[in-house]
Design a binder for these strands. Sequence first.
DNA 1: TGATTAAAGATTGTATACAATATAGAATTG
DNA 2: CAATTCTATATTGTATACAATCTTTAATCA
Lengths: 236, 236
Amino acid sequence: MGARASNYKYLTELPPGKSRDIYIELQKAILSHGLLPGVKLSEDEVGELFGASRTIVRTALQALSHAQLVTIEKNRGAFIAQPSIKEAQEVFEARELVEPRVAGMAAKIIKPKDIQILEDHIQAEHDAIASGDSGEALSLSGFFHVMIADISGHEVFSKIVRSLISRSSLIIALYWKRLDTTCESHSHHALLDAFAKNDVQAAEEIMKSHIVDLHSGLDLKSRRQTKQSLASILKK
Amino acid sequence: MGARASNYKYLTELPPGKSRDIYIELQKAILSHGLLPGVKLSEDEVGELFGASRTIVRTALQALSHAQLVTIEKNRGAFIAQPSIKEAQEVFEARELVEPRVAGMAAKIIKPKDIQILEDHIQAEHDAIASGDSGEALSLSGFFHVMIADISGHEVFSKIVRSLISRSSLIIALYWKRLDTTCESHSHHALLDAFAKNDVQAAEEIMKSHIVDLHSGLDLKSRRQTKQSLASILKK
DNA sequence: TGATTAAAGATTGTATACAATATAGAATTG
DNA sequence: CAATTCTATATTGTATACAATCTTTAATCA
């Protein structure tokens, strides 16, 4: 995981406190593929790791389950979610509907300052890829989409996009075609060009085809096996 | 509230148990305007009402806060959410994007059996209006949209729609123009006609204009005041 | 009297003990 | 030896006690 973790603002309904911290740390680990689908999150183990009581840990795990990053099975515990093939399909269909609209809205009102921030972010993506930190790279490329949603100023769409992006990370872990290949693309750059011109329609189209691209990078025939227990990867 | 409460399947990430029951009961009360925005849900009070310990109640309240039906303020407690004007606007904008698509998908694959169920449901709406049970009528008219989402078979869209519909109920409580007027319309019937013909485009258009209609029924200039404490309305 | 402060009460936050359930391993049986 | 049952262990579910915080009331002072 990235030595310098992205300090981008994470969202959760949780009030500030230890539960929220645990939520954010686990989310980071999930989004950067430090924790893979299927891994069990035992309450004692997580509590031990973060020096928190089970009460606190349960609050965090329940929040993650509401965000659909974790599945809680009665009397069995919490596991990193494993989206089905159908869900994977649907998540990307939803992204194809919502994100182009959001990108268009962002294009309409984006300011030079925001464009600069996005450019820096793309640079950070490249750096992560260059340094071989594919987990961080993946996480950053997801955040790029969230940042655009935030720029649009539309909080309801923004929350929907956040949720879809998070789940996309699990989907990529399970169904991405070529494990070696990073999902870098030129689309992010192209999007910035459209933003710079405040070209709403171009932004919509580029975003649409970008997501269709990502979607087609998935192998939605069979689910990858992901055992790998132990949550010792959390220690950054 | 309706003597015969809608037994339509409620969704929550909560596993079966008392927390889930409380969640569902509170949700019902919120959606039918038995509990109005701003009302405090004290843990002891709710626990007393349902014969549950605070641990259980807290789980339910936290789930409701994740569904954005309840706002939890640190050290102050849980309150029925009060969507802002901006959020109200955004929720309906999101509905205008997502629901037409979902209606179109439903039109493509709907079966006679489903159409019959929807017809019966509309009848139940009329009955509720006739009997003056405006809370139940409102709740049913929201469920109509959820049922269509379920018929579409697209679970990701369906969950998004559920969330938007729930919040719409709070928004209507705060911003609906004429308190005396029920939000009945002919759109639901028109939608059924399109469904019967499997007319995708018509279904999309009717749904779109229906939601625009609802949207325009809101007075998004000022928020209504809703005091009314006490959660004694829960006892059906 | 009005505002400010102080104390009492009520409510939420957290840790922990105990109960219920599931899991893993040992013993038993065919 | 394979399959099954039983037992011991580990894990989650829930209630409750105590701590921290907020709210309300009472008391004090200008």
